[in-house]
Amino acid sequence: MVAGTRLDSQDPHYREGAACLQTGSGFFRVQSRPSRDLSVLLAAHQATRAEGPQHWLDLMAGCGIRGLRWGLESAPQSPHPLALWLNDADPERMDSLQANLKPLSGHAGVDLALSQQPAERLLRQAYLDQRRFDLIDLDAFGCPNGLLQSALAVLRFGGVLILASTDGRSPTGHDRVAAVRRFAAAARAHPSSWELALRLQLAALAREAWMLGRGLEPLACFSDGRTFRLAVRLHRRVGADEEGSLGLLARCEHCGDQAVQPVLKLSGWRACSCLSEVGRWAVSGPLWLGPLQSPALLQELLTLSEAMPHSLAPPSRRLLERLQADPGLPVCCWSTDELAQRLGLAGPPPLHRLVQALQGDGYWAGVSGVMAGQLRTDAPWKVLLQRCADLA
């Protein structure tokens, strides 16, 4: 995947979108361009719907590439002025930040501020100063949950929080004790582990928003297996039945069946599909049972990208198109590799043919946009197995 361009082998500059800068010796992943493209489009979308000046915060700016692209690509989409604040706690980053952001110095309509503070201190001081932001990018190392309430407290109603987590072990069921500490939840190993991690992170975000009396709307959620990324919009009030999106996901390791229950309607679990009493549910959660994506907004971003020709690399466009086609419902996902293994097939069934067969039976079925080779459906487990066997 080509995410950006080095100008030549002797030049330390890196080009991405409209930005040209030096990434420096700190941590930087060229492969993370899809997340940066998404942040640029979300910032531009915020700018187009703004009714007044915009305030955007890059809380962990690194080399400053997101802020530079915001200023060069996103800000021109709005007639309103932009207050752009880039922060990184590492004091050794400041010289690099100042050099990389020179193109925004004196840039019409952009008021640039740089700082080097711990994220928690900046957010708490912003709250005390009654500063609010329309867009916050929190690109954290490890689990970001300790910063969630502070970030949401300074996010405007209708504002967007873009969140990243590199904590892959605890929410995917590989460190269950850490999952209890960080998410107050059980996390069990699951074939759809990336989606499980995203839903646990969304549940943590929703609980923090609800404690503030606010509502939460997922806009886009995805992962490359290394970093888990979410974009959510904060609403003034909790939506109708929004609390019904918090629940539990159960899976029987023996037979592969799955079941879901909202916390508000929690009761005894139904029997799994085991023919004997060997099977037993392994339950994960509480986690988010609602949608993972906003297909309408993602379509608006794809349309907006046509007017911003440098904003969306081909791999990023393919990612957004996959997410736009998969709202994240129903919750239960199955891997075609697991289906083939359970049926003793030589290889996985053709995914799109399996989706069509289930749809022909009157069930909802679609390809997962979160993990390759997976489908989500509301068809009973035995029906799903039978359709796989028919295709084989």
Score class of each variant (00 low, 15 high):
residue 4 G to V: 05
residue 8 D to P: 02
residue 10 Q to P: 00
residue 14 Y to E: 06
residue 20 C to H: 07
residue 22 Q to C: 11
residue 28 F to G: 10
residue 32 S to T: 15
residue 36 R to C: 03
residue 38 L to V: 09
residue 41 L to D: 08
residue 43 A to I: 08
residue 44 A to T: 06
residue 51 E to S: 14
residue 52 G to V: 04
residue 55 H to C: 13
residue 56 W to N: 01
residue 58 D to Y: 02
residue 59 L to E: 00
residue 60 M to F: 01
residue 69 R to D: 04
residue 70 W to P: 01
residue 71 G to L: 07
residue 79 P to H: 11
residue 81 P to N: 06
residue 85 W to Q: 13
residue 86 L to E: 07
residue 91 P to Y: 07
residue 94 M to L: 15
residue 94 M to E: 13
residue 102 K to H: 08
residue 105 S to Q: 14
residue 108 A to Q: 11
residue 109 G to P: 04
residue 110 V to Q: 05
residue 112 L to T: 01
residue 113 A to L: 13
residue 119 A to S: 14
residue 120 E to R: 15
residue 122 L to F: 13
residue 123 L to P: 04
residue 125 Q to M: 14
residue 126 A to F: 02
residue 127 Y to C: 10
residue 128 L to C: 09
residue 133 F to D: 03
residue 134 D to W: 00
residue 135 L to N: 00
residue 137 D to Y: 08
residue 140 A to P: 02
residue 142 G to Q: 10
residue 142 G to H: 08
residue 142 G to C: 00
residue 144 P to I: 04
residue 145 N to Y: 05
residue 147 L to V: 07
residue 147 L to I: 07
residue 147 L to P: 06
residue 150 S to C: 12
residue 156 R to M: 03
residue 158 G to R: 05
residue 163 L to Y: 06
residue 163 L to A: 08
residue 166 T to M: 10
residue 168 G to W: 11
residue 171 P to S: 05
residue 173 G to R: 08
residue 177 V to F: 10
residue 179 A to K: 09
residue 186 A to F: 15
residue 188 R to V: 14
residue 190 H to F: 02
residue 193 S to M: 13
residue 204 A to I: 04
residue 205 L to V: 05
residue 209 A to M: 02
residue 211 M to T: 04
residue 216 L to H: 03
residue 218 P to E: 08
residue 224 D to S: 03
residue 226 R to K: 11
residue 227 T to V: 12
residue 234 L to G: 10
residue 234 L to H: 09
residue 242 E to C: 07
residue 242 E to Q: 13
residue 253 E to V: 07
residue 254 H to W: 08
residue 255 C to Q: 08
residue 260 V to S: 02
residue 261 Q to E: 13
residue 266 L to H: 12
residue 267 S to A: 15
residue 270 R to M: 05
residue 271 A to I: 08
residue 278 V to D: 14
residue 284 S to I: 03
residue 285 G to P: 09
residue 286 P to M: 11
residue 292 L to I: 03
residue 294 S to V: 00
residue 294 S to C: 13
residue 295 P to H: 10
residue 296 A to M: 01
residue 299 Q to K: 11
residue 304 L to M: 05
residue 308 M to R: 13
residue 312 L to N: 01
residue 313 A to I: 03
residue 317 R to E: 15
residue 317 R to F: 02
residue 319 L to N: 06
residue 320 L to D: 00
residue 322 R to D: 06
residue 324 Q to V: 00
residue 326 D to M: 01
residue 326 D to A: 02
residue 329 L to V: 04
residue 334 W to K: 00
residue 343 L to A: 14
residue 343 L to Y: 03
residue 343 L to C: 14
residue 347 G to K: 14
residue 348 P to E: 13
residue 348 P to S: 12
residue 349 P to S: 09
residue 354 L to R: 03
residue 355 V to L: 09
residue 357 A to K: 14
residue 367 V to T: 15
residue 372 A to W: 02
residue 382 K to W: 12
residue 388 C to K: 07
